[in-house]
Structures are given as C-alpha cells and as structure tokens.
Design a protein around this nucleic acid. Structure first.
Lengths: 160, 160
DNA sequence: TTATATGCAAACGCTTTGCATCACG
DNA sequence: CGTGATGCAAAGCGTTTGCATATAA
C-alpha cells in the first residue's frame, strides 16, 4: 500500500507545526488537529465544529475558526472555494507550492505538485504583460474509489 | 490598437445574450449590462450596487444580485474568489473555456485561453486516478500599466 | 390578463469580535 | 503574575428570500 502516512502521523505533524511556531498545543487544538487529520479530504468549519462537539461538548465555534486560521497561517491547512461557492479546508503539505484535486463525491483530496504549471503561468504572464504574483489551480472530479463504486451501484436515475 | 471591443459592444453583447435566452432586457438589466461592460476588470456586487444607485436611485440590492446570477448562468460574467476570500465578478466570453488573470492593483482582468492547461490537467488526473470534471485556474498579478505607474510614483513606504 | 421583474426589508448563514474567565509558562 | 487561549453571545457582512407592487408580453 502506498499511503504510509497515517492520520496519526498527520496529527503529530500538525501539533509539531504549532509548537515550532511557538503556539500552545492545547487540548482543543490537539482535538482540531486530530479531526483535521482524520478527514482524508476537505471539510467545512461547521462539520469540524459538529464533530468536535461529539467529543468535547463545550468547544466554541470561535475556537474552531481560530484554530483553523492558525493552521492556515502555518500552511498546514488551506482554505479553498468549492465550485458551489462554499468554503472548505483541506489538510496539506506546508513545504511546497501545490494545488488540490478534490473528489466531488467523497471529498477526498490529493495534493498536486505545481510542476509544469509554473512554466505555463510564466508564459501566460509574459504574453499578457502581467507580473504574476500568485496563481491558484483547483481541480474537481471523481476519485477511482468513487468511480468504481458508482459503476457497481448505478443508483437511482439510471435504471428505468 | 488591439482592443477593438468597446464597452458599448460588450453592453450590446450582454443584452443580446439576455434576449437570446428569453429574458427581458429591462432598464435595470440594461443598466447592469452597461455597468458590467464599463469595468475592464472585476467588481463586487456592492460596487455595482453603489454605481447603479448613482444612476438610478431606486435600484434594489436584490435586483443587482439577481441580474448578476442571471448573467453568470449565461456565462457572460463569472464569479471568482479573490485571494482575500472576497467574491468578485468579471465580464467574460461565454464561448470558450478560459481563465482569468486579474491585476491586484487596478482590478483589470484579461481572459486567458485554456491552451496547454487542458493537457496538463489530463495528465494530473491520469496520474492521480481521478476523472477530472472541472478545473479552475486563477491568476493574480500586476498589469503593465500599474507596474509602470508604480515605478514612476514609488508611493509611501519606499522613501525613508 | 398572466407571467415576469422589481423594491424593500427581513431572514439567513457563515465568520468575526468583545469580553470575562481560565490555563499555562 | 502576565500572556495566551477559550467560551459565549452578539455583531457583522454578504447574500437570499417573501411578498406586494409594477411592468412587460
């Protein structure tokens, strides 16, 4: 199996990132780290709050948002905009510039290296006479697991 | 000069798009069309409302949002997410898949053809085992006009 | 005269903030 | 002790909706 990175590893990585930056790894933040790490994909602040409250009743909405902000500033999570306009967060690797490919069905997301895109972006800038400071590529589709599941169980709509 | 497309042309194009789709080209919608066409770049709903009220006092917030929704459904404008998280709209060409390069300073935006990106996206999907349904590339930078203006007038901050 | 579009204001959902309290260093 | 973190509730902001009115087909 490829994914040798467990949710546990991710949790620790997040906590370490907090500590390295001089923030306290409080119980609430550890909880958020665990919740974030246990989703393989994107999640909304509301979902995280709900899941958080299943474990710790008195966790405040603000705490979730503040923790998420913090993690975003550490580039441990990234906030992205779904095609619907809704906001979501994804766990990601803080070390390199990359993009996200997210499955519209199950929400799983994978990091995509910038790769050739940088060159392409450069060229676009040159042609348009712009100095490009930032670019963002968001990819949406269906992962192989969801695709095969869909093939096996056609679901309502397909059968007459 | 290259830009043979005037704001007036764009206004007409928007109005025609409305009519072709079977919507009424009401005075309010014509106004919105004119306002949209007269910005060379992105704008927020609030800006449009404000500008609209300079011309027609009794135009409702909802009317602006509804008109913008309508135009977005006709692909005449597109809603995009600025790096700040704010929403903006841009006038664009409904006929081909493309992306936007917007100047963070003046807001001007240019359409960027998808070009090589399609191939790149394909490859990313293949590698990740995803069937990619949609992708969105957003580019932010500074246009040549703003760049030279900035060079001429360094502004506060640079001089001691 | 019937469907469509509009204005207004209230409702909405998501996010942030003020502030008192609490925990940690 | 002083700084940082938290919970709560209220405020804020952008967007949408209900409804009565006005306008167009």
């Amino acid at each position: 199996m490829r994914p040798s990175i467990t949710a546990d590893d991710s949790t620790k990585r997040i906590i370490r990132a907090l500590e390295r930056a001089g923030y306290q790894a409080t119980p609430n933040r550890r909880l958020v780290a665990r919740l974030v790490a246990s989703t393989g994909g994107h999640f909304t602040a509301a979902e995280l709050l709900e899941r958080g409250r299943q474990e710790r009743v008195n966790i405040g909405r603000a705490t979730i948002f503040r923790a998420l902000d913090l993690l975003a500033s550490l580039r441990v999570v990234e906030r992205l905009d779904l095609p619907t306009g809704a906001h979501a967060y994804v766990l990601c690797d803080p070390d390199e510039h990359h993009h996200h490919l997210v499955c519209s069905t199950c929400g799983h997301s994978v990091d995509v290296a910038d790769g050739e895109l940088a060159r392409l972006v450069d060229e676009i800038g040159r042609r348009a006479g712009y100095r490009i400071d930032a670019h963002r590529l968001e990819l949406f589709g269906m992962c192989s697991a969801c695709a095969s599941e869909q093939a096996a169980v056609p679901g309502p709509g397909s059968p007459a």
